Simulated scan of single mutants.
Amino acid sequence: MKKLLATLSLVSLVQNYPVMAQTQTSEQLPIQGSDYIQKVINAKLIANFPDGQFYPNSLISRAELASILVKAFHLEKRQAVEQKKAKFIPDVPSSHPGYQDIQIVLKTDIMKGYRGNMFFPNQRVSRAEGLAIFAQAYGVFQFPNDTVNEILTPHPDAENIPTWARKAIATVVSEGFINTDTQGNINPLSPMTRADMAYVLSKYLQRQQKQPETPVVPGVPQL
């Protein structure tokens, strides 16, 4: 299915109605094995902390999300980056370690600032926000509302997904990128952890792997 970057202000809506993820107390999703975590470490999309630990339950900040998305989708190569000047962000000076990546996600409209051009780089993101912004970089499927509802209905807490995130989350669900708890809940209002993001990225990397070529069988004409 053809993917189109959402031109409605999906991410703009996210930014205008921010969710303070750190205030949520929902049950954390189970971490089943570490293969997917190692996969994203090997791909250099998320690094261990200086002490060599991954800390899967640590929460993702907006600055960290920006850095991850630039690496995963090579956003620095998107044409819009070369066409726009650097934006003045009061809380992200040029000395900030995430300055370049934050500038890139802003220039490509993958993420937006809040009112007054503030980015709040240290603010934690909810799963709804993180998944919606990931889908924005990946390409949001322009499903009709009936299809969105059909995709999300099997998840018991689908009604908790904010309206602005439903189409984006339907995209990641349909692509098999999302992790859920044992009851199939998406937990959209819970904080997004490093393990959550690693799972999404590992599934994305798996999708990017080249399919094996069809072997040539002697005596069989090639179409």
Rank of each mutant, 00 (worst) to 15 (best):
D109R: 09
P50A: 04
P188M: 09
R194M: 00
K44I: 00
F120K: 14
M20C: 04
R166I: 04
G176S: 01
I37A: 09
L106K: 03
D181H: 02
G116H: 04
S174M: 03
P144Y: 07
Q142V: 01
K44E: 14
D109K: 12
S202V: 07
A6L: 10
W164C: 00
Q209F: 04
N160R: 03
G98S: 10
E159G: 06
I68G: 02
A195Y: 00
A165T: 04
N57Y: 12
Q83F: 09
V217C: 02
K71H: 00
H74G: 05
T153K: 15
V172H: 10
S174H: 10
P154A: 02
L13F: 07
N185L: 04
E150H: 15
L8P: 10
D51I: 08
Q222Y: 09
F54Q: 08
A47N: 11
M192S: 13
L45N: 04
K44R: 11
I46S: 04
T171M: 03
T214A: 10
A72W: 09
I68D: 03
G130D: 01
R207G: 02
L69R: 07
P188F: 07
R127C: 02
F73R: 03
F177S: 06
V172K: 13
M197K: 08
V140M: 06
Q28T: 11
P93D: 12
V173S: 00
E150L: 14
F119E: 04
V92N: 02
G219T: 12
T163N: 15
P215V: 08
K2W: 03
T153F: 10
G139C: 05
A43Q: 08
K3C: 09
F141N: 15
V19K: 00
S12C: 05
G219W: 12
Y55K: 15
G116C: 04
L10W: 08
G184T: 10
Q136R: 08
D181M: 03
T147K: 15
L205R: 09
M111G: 01
R194I: 01
I178D: 00
A128F: 11
V172P: 14
I41T: 14
E76K: 15
I186G: 05
E27A: 14
S34Y: 13
D101G: 02
S34K: 11
S126T: 09
S12I: 08
A165S: 14
M118F: 14
K44P: 02
P93Y: 10
A72I: 11
I110R: 06
A80T: 13
K87G: 00
F143G: 07
L131H: 03
T25K: 08
L152K: 05
I102Q: 01
A72Q: 12
E150T: 14
I31S: 06
Q123Y: 13
I102L: 02
Q15S: 10
N160T: 05
Y138D: 15
D91M: 06
P212S: 09
G130M: 13
Q100K: 12
P121F: 05
K167D: 00
M1H: 05
A47C: 01
N42V: 02
T153A: 12
Q103G: 04
P218S: 05
L10A: 09
Y99F: 15
S12Q: 15
T171N: 02
P97S: 00
Y138A: 15
H74L: 02
K39N: 12
A128H: 11
D157L: 08
